[in-house]
């Protein structure tokens, strides 16, 4: 399963606990919105293409 985490306010310790478990059996990708170089176009494509999106 492809899982996309979107960090609205930067990486988060609690989310990381979930990710560590989930990445054992899944492909987990993270996008940090505090990174000024984030492309909204690419982000929308990632949201569409993933199986689950979790914006934290």
């Amino acid at each position: 399963m492809k899982i996309l985490y979107i960090f609205n306010d930067g990486p988060d310790e609690k989310a990381t606990k979930l990710i560590e478990e989930q990445k054992n059996d899944n492909k987990v990708e993270t996008v940090d919105l505090t990174n000024k170089e984030t492309s909204y176009d690419e982000l929308v494509d990632k949201i569409e293409q993933c199986d689950k999106v979790i914006s934290w």
């Binding site: 899982i3 989310a15 478990e21 989930q22 689950k52 999106v53 979790i54 914006s55 934290w56």
Partner: peptide
Amino acid sequence: ATMARELLSYDHILP
């Protein structure tokens, strides 16, 4: 670990 797996059975996961 169970929570992490169980969450993936939901259509929307809303923190």
